[in-house]
Simulated assay, not measured.
Amino acid sequence: MAIENAKALIIVNNWGIEETELTRPLRDLKAAGAKVTLAATELEPCETVQHDRYEGETLTPDAKLSDVQAADYDLLVVPGGTCNVDRLRVNEDAITLAQEFAHEGKPIAAICHGAWLLVNAGLMDGKTASPCRYIAADIENAGGHYVNEEVTVDDANGWRFITSRTPADLDAFVGAIKDTLA
């Protein structure tokens, strides 16, 4: 598949998203020619933050989580932001989407706290991941293996899992996503 033919889905809660962990994958993938859909819990503006604390950019979602299906996309991206993922990981639509992507053998990319969603979705068993250190115990307790690396690409269990720790790792994170889609 060429990246120009790829369809990526980015899912978020409507607030508390770490700004660059959303905007970099969104804009870089679009600039590379991928078709990117931003889906949020509500069809209302998505308020980002910088470092979980300072006001960031506001973006308009393309769709609601409840209106998108894994079958229509090639890759799922889960940005971080503590508050974003803390709410996303208990959202049934988000959990179902993550499970469908994995069960269909489609790649999932999660940065920082984004991997929390996969813990709640029951998808961490046997996977190696490099999320932020704050959820390392959650990854391990869910049967995964935590590593402190810039980017980790794990193909265990029939689906690719791309993870990175923080915004400082965005070049490697976005690069791994592009490599997967290319």
Rank of each mutant, 00 (worst) to 15 (best):
86 D>Y: 05
181 L>I: 06
80 G>A: 12
58 T>R: 14
3 I>Y: 06
65 L>T: 06
51 H>Q: 15
125 D>Q: 15
129 A>P: 12
69 Q>V: 08
177 I>V: 13
39 A>S: 02
121 A>R: 03
90 V>D: 13
146 Y>S: 09
27 R>A: 06
141 N>W: 12
171 D>P: 09
65 L>A: 04
127 K>G: 03
156 A>H: 09
39 A>K: 04
60 T>P: 07
126 G>A: 01
20 T>L: 13
132 C>F: 06
20 T>C: 03
83 C>L: 14
151 V>E: 06
101 F>V: 12
35 K>N: 05
174 V>T: 15
75 L>Q: 00
153 V>S: 08
58 T>Q: 14
176 A>C: 12
181 L>Y: 00
3 I>T: 05
144 G>R: 00
24 R>K: 14
147 V>T: 13
146 Y>I: 14
65 L>Y: 12
153 V>M: 08
97 L>Q: 02
21 E>A: 07
8 A>E: 00
95 I>F: 02
53 R>E: 14
64 K>H: 04
121 A>M: 04
161 F>C: 01
181 L>W: 01
50 Q>C: 13
73 Y>V: 05
91 N>R: 06
62 D>S: 08
126 G>K: 01
162 I>C: 06
74 D>A: 01
23 T>S: 13
32 A>M: 07
129 A>W: 06
109 A>N: 07
109 A>G: 08
172 A>H: 07
99 Q>L: 03
24 R>W: 11
